[in-house]
Design a protein around this nucleic acid. Structure first.
Lengths: 327, 327
DNA sequence: GTGAAAGCGCTAACAC
DNA sequence: GTGTTAGCGCTTTCAC
């Protein structure tokens, strides 16, 4: 593998000049430039990024956390982030946490080891202090998770409000025995959803107990399994608030299997307004959010931070709305 | 940020000893070790990976290509790869190609720039020569794409055979006007599928024309749109071979909307046996593949290559089978 | 416009 | 068991 020194020798100039040519610096004579270019061509030289990284103390790489790579909500979210990063000249490395605190800690470790220029956290089981303590002065942005913090930039959806108004909608429709299904309940996001659910009941003078809350379900398979459990005996619920559209689709197919009529006997509301909503029968009602806008603002802020611009911590919240379909 | 030199000074030993402690080398006195550990603790030192990367000429990072991050087949595939890489101590950086040759070239560029220790290609629009020419002597493995090459390790599914037998199944069931829907038709994989489709017709003395082949469809939305086109007028097809389960689900929902009875008038077969198959009505028939096994073998080979083991090019093909459900 | 020289943070061969 | 030393490949002052 040729280095700039090889190029320098072959073209009869110094390492500095070669570097200038590679980096398109001005103030290089046309003569030197062509000689260097020829040498580069001849030795099929490619610049070794590891040298650059050490010297410049950057790597043009951004870390992103995701619970699982294959996730109907997080995959598109991270995909959007990745595409925008690429456009700005950054690569992204993805860390799957599997909702494990250990795995989450590891990404912060990588950040402090300077392999990453910044990290975007899409969900977290850790609190502000823990995160801060691990990342110290590095660039960290929170995307999607409504983390309570005054020291990190946070871009999140108004989960509480979205669930609140959807729950009220169901209650006002005459549904009384609602069920709330959460993914991983220990994140701030899931807590907010549950609060919205609870508050909606309170504000309409309806009781709401912890028995109405189920946790740890999110995939189609889990929806089917859960549904088989709920619907096999006597089901006294007339409405289910599912944490994701996939879960909702699984529940719906199970309900049909057990002869539970949707939406007559049972209403189901999903989350994220994934296209899968259109393939079920009846089509799934779901909560739609402004994720694109959120990512756009996030990237704007990230790029500013990477440029070293100074400004106060950003905190933005985006409203969602219920899309009513057949369930 | 403290460096090993700072640690060395504070603990009264040399850089080498600090390095030995950090890397758990034997032959370090208990005394030195504790002194170093204390200094590390005191200065909250974390090793700077950029220095290590330059020195060792590795980065414990593997690049993986994916068409889009949010893809019902590729997301779980890459997720599995990522999880196994992590276990082996490697990070992965994901490159979305969006089926663009330009984007694909960029990942090979990164590879030659030494930012990556190896690359896993899951699909490609380029031929063997182009890839070889760009990556030169770097480690490249092909996962999923049945690329014709004698110089790269290839792990792929027997797409041709899976489609062949499924098509024969449909034809023998009495279906005569089949439609074949491909994702991005320019990859070797899609060509193989089409060949299987064609051959199945030939072997049963049925005609098969290029008009039966549709390309560029893969998502639920595209399935619905395509279905609306096909089913709105008079539909003379009695069987559709969809390139993915999501596409199939979209087609199915559109068929129902237009009053086309499935499976009576129309049969639909999907690909990948995604859980979504269980949520449609009727449940989708689909082709199931041995992806887990493929990834397992791939990783084994990759790790061997990274260790520098020498062995002839590996080429493995895995059989799939049709899971018959309601469509 | 160009080159010499310093150094980013780390590891490892070698000598003791 | 430990320190000295060289150097991975690159960028960037600074002087000319």
């Amino acid at each position: 593998m040729a280095t700039i020194l090889d190029i320098a020798r072959l073209s009869g100039v110094s390492k500095s000049t070669v570097s200038r040519v590679i980096n398109n610096h001005p103030h290089v004579s046309e003569d030197s430039r062509t000689k260097v270019m020829e040498a580069i061509e001849k030795l099929s030289f490619v610049r070794n990024a590891r040298g650059v990284n050490l010297r410049t103390q950057t790597s043009k790489t951004i870390g992103v956390t995701i619970p699982v790579l294959d996730h109907p909500y997080f995959s598109p979210l991270v995909g959007m982030i990745a595409a925008k990063c690429r456009k700005a000249g950054y690569k992204i490395v993805i860390f799957q946490t599997f909702y494990s605190i250990d795995e989450e800690n590891k990404i912060y470790e990588k950040l402090t080891e300077n392999e990453l220029d910044a990290v975007i956290i899409t969900h977290t089981l850790l609190g502000e202090k823990k995160i801060k303590q691990r990342v110290r002065d590095k660039i960290v942005l929170i995307c999607n998770e409504p983390l309570q913090t005054r020291h990190l930039d946070v871009f999140s959806l108004d989960e509480r409000d979205a669930v609140y108004s959807s729950t009220q909608y169901l209650l006002k429709e005459g549904r009384n025995q609602l069920l709330f299904c959460a993914d991983e309940e220990k994140t701030p996001l899931q807590r907010q959803r549950w609060e919205g659910f609870k508050q909606a009941h309170l504000d309409l003078n309806k009781s709401c107990t912890i028995q109405q809350k189920l946790s740890g379900y999110s995939t189609i398979e889990e929806g089917i399994l859960l549904g088989d459990e709920i619907f096999s005996g006597h089901c006294n619920h007339d409405g289910i608030f599912a944490g994701s559209d996939f879960l909702a689709a699984g529940l719906l197919s199970s309900a049909k299997k057990h002869g539970v009529s949707v939406p007559k006997e049972l209403s189901i509301i999903g989350f994220d307004n994934h296209p899968i909503c259109l393939t079920t029968f009846p089509a799934l009602s779901s909560i739609q959010n402004q994720t694109e806008l959120m990512v756009k603002d996030l990237m704007h802020c990230l790029l500013d931070r990477l440029e070293g611009k100074k400004f106060p911590t950003v905190r933005k919240v985006y409203k969602g709305n219920l899309v009513i379909r057949g369930t």
